[in-house]
Amino acid sequence: MANTIIGSSIVIDGEISGDEDLVIQGTVKGKIALKESLFVEASGVVEADIEVQNVDVAGRVTGNIAATDKVELKADCRVVGDVRAPRILIADGASFKGNVDMDVKER
């Protein structure tokens, strides 16, 4: 499976879109739109609005997250922004500030 990985020293300022999983270890500013899953790893920093199917956040996200399936905020993540998804999981140790909306079945 051809995964897309944004390495830890990479900084992207702009827009990322695609139909495959994306792993972020670096920094992305702007906008992310995926039809698959987004993984923000512990070293990852995202300052962007996110529209994806699934998100796993272990790093930092500043921006609004809209997922068609699931948002998972792992321990030690830091998220600031509104989260909208049918399923939202917030693990013990996660830091989050913003609104949660689980009312949407379909975007």
Partner: peptide, 21 residues
């Protein structure tokens, strides 16, 4: 551990980094 932009991904904007891409 290096950065890969997969075949279905479009990045528009500015990309900088200190590793292989």
């Amino acid at each position: 551990d290096s950065t890969v932009i997969g075949p279905s991904i479009l990045i528009s904007g500015k990309l900088t980094g200190d590793e292989d891409l």
